[in-house]
Design a protein around this nucleic acid. Sequence first.
DNA 1: CTTTCCAGTTCACTGGTTACA
DNA 2: TTGTAACCAGTGAACTGGAAA
Lengths: 341, 341
Amino acid sequence: MSQRRVTIVEIAKEAGVSAQTVSRVVNGRTNVAPETRDKIQEIIDRRGYHPSRLARSLLRGRSHTVGVVGYGLGLFGPSYTLAGIVREANKEGYSVLPNMSNEPEIEDPARIIGELIEYHVDGIIWAVPEIGNNHDWIETVVPEQDIPFVFLSMENRPNLTTVAIDNYAGGQMATQHLIDKGHRRIGLLKGPSDWWEARERARGWYDTMQANGLTVDENLVLQGDDWSAAAGERCMRELLEKEREIDAVFVGNDSMAIGALKTAREFGLKVPDDIAVLGFDDVPEAAYIYPSLTTVQQNLTSLGCRALSELDRLINVDDADWPSSGEAIVIQPQLIVRESA
Amino acid sequence: MSQRRVTIVEIAKEAGVSAQTVSRVVNGRTNVAPETRDKIQEIIDRRGYHPSRLARSLLRGRSHTVGVVGYGLGLFGPSYTLAGIVREANKEGYSVLPNMSNEPEIEDPARIIGELIEYHVDGIIWAVPEIGNNHDWIETVVPEQDIPFVFLSMENRPNLTTVAIDNYAGGQMATQHLIDKGHRRIGLLKGPSDWWEARERARGWYDTMQANGLTVDENLVLQGDDWSAAAGERCMRELLEKEREIDAVFVGNDSMAIGALKTAREFGLKVPDDIAVLGFDDVPEAAYIYPSLTTVQQNLTSLGCRALSELDRLINVDDADWPSSGEAIVIQPQLIVRESA
DNA sequence: CTTTCCAGTTCACTGGTTACA
DNA sequence: TTGTAACCAGTGAACTGGAAA
């Protein structure tokens, strides 16, 4: 790098005033003589001076930065969620420090939190989905921290603020729609059931089937190894091989549903006439594939927005009210009816 | 927030040594007595001390943070690219400060750069695609900065480091594949042509058609308003309405191609027998839709990785060699043959 | 007796802000 | 209206006092 950055002292020297006066101009304080202010402002613009947020954060004890820990940037869900967080962050004057892993199993949460703390983040959004017991560390680690946390896509726990899509309701509305359309033997191709979200969606199917007096048969239920189209393809094949009577399936997410559609084609089944397929997510392609996919839309961008605004609220609560008692924020999904069901 | 963060002075006080000694332990310096080191380390662990990167960055003049300016988090391309950047950043010990806009037309690049400079970023990756003249500011603004820049997905310019997929070669290999398969009347559904990438892909089609002595007719070329499936659907409809003789199309990206497939179905055309369709991107669904999509794969994750490692190199060049002369790094795409062509 | 090494301290400094004069 | 001093959290450089070469 060529030269050092322009500092407040350099500006002050050039203007023939103290650094303090420059600081006042930068922060829009009133107690500066108009002509002094104009002169200083001119020098600031000309020299391209930018105050250091590092120095400022250090002094004020607020960095206006939030950490986001997540999994799977590049996947539909995480990237939309992050987009929502970033958008809201810009609006609220925060910068985002993302720490996205490639594995949903975060090996050492305390280390990641420690790293973010080194950056003086004002708060942390934990956007790693709840899988198996990958959230067990929370009880011991989080209470020790002096910054607020918001958790995404996990089951609510006492004293924690969580923001999640209502996956259970989504499963219910999907299943009810299939039933309303006259389907009776409805299969379930669920996501990996160590995922909380997969279990919730499955529970929605299960309860709705029972509430409507329909057979809830273990033969109707298959589970993907992951959420991929390949998994959906395999599950669907297995299901169709043993259950030719089936007339509809509720699939854990759209990728799997796309795989399931492929299998249905290969079996010579017409969707939705021979078998209806209903997904979850509403990926951008869902409206354009053949047949277009009926699905449960989850508004992940607004999930991210909500997480950030909630974190902002927690950051600004009075010390006296700390730690906060936590809150479970639930966002309702929406059924999007297209051709496949 | 409840209590203040633990500082080096507190640790020092508890250990009965100076802050400097603690600093040495934290930084793994050798000139500390083993028993002193152990004692200090124990206190650090127990108190959960994390050194402040803010203070450290301020002092050392290096923040180990890079700014990433991009457009359209949530879209396939940008999120994969960012994923690559973040992955490589973790490996190289950088943190990423993303500044993702919702519009590809950045209204005030200087302001965004200024903001990142306030955070003392060591360098900036500009991942906004080149559209119209949205990169004109570069010539005047960039030379004034004392941190290095790497630009993604733009035409190379003198003294600038750029990393881009070889879209022209991608267009060539796509078109050549269609020709090799016996297609002769090959249409082009290009992306919005104010995008540099769209023009490059189109140029690959054009040159390859000519090189093979095929008709390059303006009637064969249609342009999407954007890169969406809806745009692909519309273009394909318009093309088929005026050119029933067409036997293949090269489409600007996979989303548009998915839209084009939908239109082909609606016209009762069989893909690839009546008309072949070839996309660009290789989105995850491409292998699973019907018919599975032959496409040009661009490895965006490695694009992001490469951008970061190049930026790292620029950050570490000697001051004497600054400013660097720039370099055009080109990443080759790859043809993925499936059913649609 | 001088030089070097060692463990550790003191001081100045990073870039800015708050309190006070 | 403006300046001065202290401070945020940490680090590089110079330095201290004593032991070993």
